[in-house]
Structures are given as structure tokens and as C-alpha cells.
């Protein structure tokens, strides 16, 4: 019985890409009606992405027992681009444009499934809407779940999506008195 339930849960995660992307698009459309300022929609997308990211980190680590604890930013970028993004978006990604002593880098998605069926009007982009900010928020949330504080912002160009990530700090648990790390 427990095995059957797990199998069903695994099956239910194989939802089509189209269901996910169309749902996202319909949701953004609805939010643009609700908020007067496209900047507020971007903030909301980032917040939703953050919440999703904290859950996805658990899901990802449960499925990938071989992913080691990361000790530097290049290793984190490698895991994101080779494992996490292909796992949940079905596309490859590359890290580049390292600056600030390897504390800042850009993840480039060559074929973002979220924007594949979408034409975002230019006036919304110039007014502050970042259509793919959900992905950036998810990365921020996932990394915070494993104790890395980062800032992430997404920019959709004509051909691809770029997510600029800036590391802030490593978060420490506060341990009870007398405990050792």
C-alpha cells in the first residue's frame, strides 16, 4: 500500500510541461489585473518563487542523494546548472560572468519553458514586470533552505533568460548553549 501511494505520487509529478507553463501564464495574467503596478507583480512572483524554492530544495535533495554539501559558489552553480534546473525545468543552463571574487554570476537558460508560449508586451517590461522572476525566487528560496543567503533577479532577453545571482552570506543556525557544530 505504501509503495503504491509513493508510485502514484511519483506519477502525479510527471505533469506535462504545458500544464505548468500555461498555469503560470494564466496566473500572471490574473495578477496583472489585480495589481496596479507591474513592479508589484514581480515582487509577488519572487515571493511565490521563494516559497516554492524552500519546498523544492527538500524534494531535490531527497531525489539526489549523491549531491554533496557545497563549499563554494562555483560548486553551487554547478549543481544548479547540471542537476536542479534540468530536473525541474527540463532544460540545460550555464553559469558565466563571474565577478566580485566569485560572489556574483549569471545563470543563462537557453530555452526557458515559461516564456516559450508567451509574448510579454514591451510596455509591461519597461514598467517593471520580470516574467520569469519566479525562477529567480525559487533559486533564492532553495539556497536559503541550505543556508546560503543570495539575491537573484531574472531578465528575459529575446533569445534566453538570464538570472543574476549575488551571494550575501552563509546563514548560521543558532545552537543551544553547550552544543558544538
Amino acid at each position: 500500500m505504501s509503495k503504491a501511494i509513493k508510485q502514484n505520487l511519483a506519477d502525479s509529478k510527471k505533469m506535462s510541461a504545458e500544464l505548468f507553463c500555461l498555469t503560470y501564464g494564466a496566473m500572471v495574467t490574473e495578477m496583472l489585473k489585480d495589481y496596479e503596478d507591474p513592479k508589484d507583480v514581480t515582487i509577488q512572483l519572487d515571493k511565490m518563487g521563494f516559497n516554492m524554492g524552500t519546498r523544492l530544495a527538500d524534494d531535490f535533495l531527497a531525489k539526489n542523494a549523491n549531491v554533496p554539501r557545497c563549499v563554494d559558489t562555483r560548486q553551487i552553480a554547478d549543481v544548479l546548472c547540471r542537476n536542479a534546473i534540468p530536473c525541474y525545468l527540463g532544460i540545460s543552463a550555464t553559469a558565466s560572468s563571474w565577478t566580485s571574487g566569485d560572489r556574483e554570476f549569471t545563470i543563462t537558460l537557453e530555452a526557458n519553458p515559461l516564456t516559450e508560449l508567451v509574448q510579454v508586451p514591451a510596455h509591461l517590461v519597461s514598467a517593471g514586470l520580470s516574467y520569469s522572476q519566479l525562477i529567480a525566487g525559487a533559486i533564492r528560496g532553495a539556497l536559503e533552505a541550505v543556508h546560503f543567503k543570495v539575491y537573484a533577479s531574472a531578465t528575459d532577453t529575446g533569445a534566453n533568460t538570464e538570472i543574476r545571482i549575488r551571494f550575501d552570506q552563509v546563514l548560521k543556525d543558532s545552537l543551544p548553549a553547550g552544543e558544538d557544530d
Partner: peptide, 9 residues
């Protein structure tokens, strides 16, 4: 590949 529809929903 597992698009996280449940979590988005």
C-alpha cells in the same frame, strides 16, 4: 523531469 505543478498550484 518533474515540473513542480503541485507546488505552483
Amino acid at each position: 523531469m518533474a515540473f513542480p505543478f503541485d507546488i505552483l498550484h
